[in-house]
Amino acid sequence: MTPGLLPMPLVDYLALSAVMFFIGVTGVIVRRNPLVMLMSIELMFNAANLLFVAYARAWLNDAGHIFAFLVITVAAAEAAIALAIVVIAFRASKNVDVDEASALRG
């Protein structure tokens, strides 16, 4: 495949990415389990990754590929810290539902 040519039209990638982002946002808003919420956030990050990679091919600019790798690395670090915090919050309250975490008034 020649560089710069995407196997599908660019708009298909954008549509898929927008759908992923929307599902991620909906997941964060609707779901109450912190683990599922974190998974939804990962979906938002990966929607952005898809944008970066698709546009990197479209513009022939490798910065987008590098950005996607950067995001993957940082998201892994974020997941490590996030799971640690969920574990200590779980130990303190014996459940993992954000509605139960309401000692601080919103």
Partner: peptide
């Protein structure tokens, strides 16, 4: 812990 969890989820979003 609750503050950390809230901050983590909202800030990551």
């Amino acid at each position: 812990h609750e503050a950390a969890l809230k901050y983590l989820i909202l800030s990551s979003t």
